[in-house]
Nucleic acid binder design. Sequence first.
DNA 1: CGGAGTAAAAGGCACTT
DNA 2: AAGTGACTTTTACTCCG
Length: 304
Amino acid sequence: MIRQRSNLIERCPECGNSTILQDSKSAELVCTNCGFVLTTDMTDMGPEWRAFTPEERKTKVRVGAPQTFMLHDKGLSTKIDWRDIGNFAPKKKAQLYRIRRWQQRIRVSDSIEKNLAVALSEMSRLCETLNLPRSITETAAIIYRKAAKKRLTRGRSIHGLAAASTYFACRQCRIVRSLSEVSMASGINRKELASNYRFLVREFRSFVPPVKPRHYITRLSNQLRLNSKTEEIAHKISRAAKNEKLTSGRGGKSIASAAMYIACKIAGENRTQREFAEAADLTEVTIRNRYREMINRLLIMVSL
DNA sequence: CGGAGTAAAAGGCACTT
DNA sequence: AAGTGACTTTTACTCCG
């Protein structure tokens, strides 16, 4: 679902204010006044570059499609139309045919290029189904290119590696998309996706920080349309839980959900454990366990 | 229905063989 | 690459108001 930017300048249905902001970091449209989230199905239509001065803008702006990592030739090579427009002499026709054939050979020359072409289009499609912003698509493309350059694609499925690169990009850019989500969208089984991802991380010797509870809180509160005040309380509880050493070893999702559940109680927003469990893709039992610990430990803190 | 709680099975991770 | 062990999460279930 692609929406033009012009369609987005509308009134916020929550507060009537018309200051809507594209939050490309979490791929959401947010009202700057009340924090209401209008849509999460956002496509970033902006340029891939930034300019800070008019001079810079002048040098960067250009005609034609922007250069992109999403095309195997970065969108730079020449394309020759497949048809003959106009009447040509047979000799000319033959020449055109030869030119076209060579152009084709040059454009998608070796096996790496062919591999790239398939992978990049697959990643574009995947990012679109996952409603990921353009920046992620580009990052995923860069990761895949790096892998291809290191010849890591050998003996592995292109689709599997493409999905893993996309997941990698999400983790690097702190945009929460779970392995299951990427797995569902790509049709790659979860375990294979996870192992491909680990393989890439190992090969690149890169350290990817785990997803922190606060990232989940931000996403879940948008997903469940929670009050921004409630979200704030949840962040505080989550920080307090961390100080009380309740977070190590536990999944970030469970900490976030429990903190948010408590925050809702405090703020008087009636939400069920079930709602959180569904949104965060875990069970009520897990939320109860974390939440019980928090209540106990944080009450001790209060009584001291 | 929403929630508290439990035991046992399953899952994921660091670490070894 | 398979095995191990400590640990978390899920499954499946009972009970409460």
